[in-house]
């Protein structure tokens, strides 16, 4: 059992109150039942702050599990997160990063897994480059419904995400790998709504058009250049 231990979490969003943070906050609550604490860092605060970066590296070296929770940003990870990972790599030292494990949680607004695959592979490659033991990934689509709100507040809308995160907690507590492959197996339910992908555009565009109307946007197709 993985008890009385600590986890280092790095949030990859460019924002402070993000969907990734909401997920890590939820995990923190669940882990507290098992006397496991999470030291949480945000890439958007760490990447240009020497003191916070030093603290992050110290915690990675002290805690056996490193968790990256991040949104997909143009098919990849965000600039602040990639910058932070590059800086961690520049500190690579087998004596301080010995016997570390890495788990990733990757999410995107698009429902299909293919949109998240490159970002997942980048986390995997980082783990391998650092000599960390890759423990697998949990990935979610349609995560934009969370909008940084606490998962429990969203009720049934976030039930499928909470269920996957609960399963992740159990796996970590029981010291099981989330998935053995690079990316192929994950815990998530890939699409919360069991509808064909071709139905998404009319539904989403109806919501977008309402938002545009509310914002008073007249020429959504403007080409300023």
């Amino acid at each position: 059992m993985y008890k009385n231990q600590k986890i280092t979490a790095l949030i990859g969003s460019t924002q402070h109150n993000s969907t990734s943070k909401a997920m890590v906050d939820y995990l923190q609550q669940k882990f507290s039942n098992h006397d496991i604490k999470i030291d949480t860092y945000k890439a958007c605060e760490v990447y240009q702050n020497e003191q916070k970066f030093t603290d992050l590296v110290t915690h990675i070296s002290q805690n056996s599990l490193f968790l990256i929770c991040a949104p997909v940003y143009i098919d990849s990870l965000s600039y602040p997160l990639i910058s932070t990972l590059e800086q961690i790599y520049s500190c690579k030292d087998d004596s301080i990063f010995h016997d570390k494990k890495l788990i990733a949680i990757i999410h995107s607004g698009f429902p299909e897994k293919i949109h998240r695959e490159s970002a997942i592979e980048i986390c995997y490659n980082f783990a391998k480059t650092m000599g960390f033991d890759w423990q697998g990934v949990v990935d979610f689509g349609v995560s934009s419904i969370i909008e940084g709100k606490p998962l429990k507040e969203l009720g049934i809308a976030s039930r499928w995400i909470r269920k996957s995160l609960d399963e992740l907690v159990e796996k970590i507590v029981n010291k099981e790998k989330v998935s053995s492959g690079v990316i192929r197996k994950s815990l998530n339910l890939p699409i919360p709504l069991p509808i064909p992908i071709k139905w998404f555009p009319p539904i989403l565009n109806f919501m977008i058009n309402r938002k545009l109307k509310k914002e008073g946007v007249e020429d959504i197709l403007a080409r300023p250049y």
Partner: peptide, 15 residues
Amino acid sequence: VSFGSYHSELKKVID
């Protein structure tokens, strides 16, 4: 190449 990604300095622009 940074772990399979573009380097952060380029990614900053692409973002």
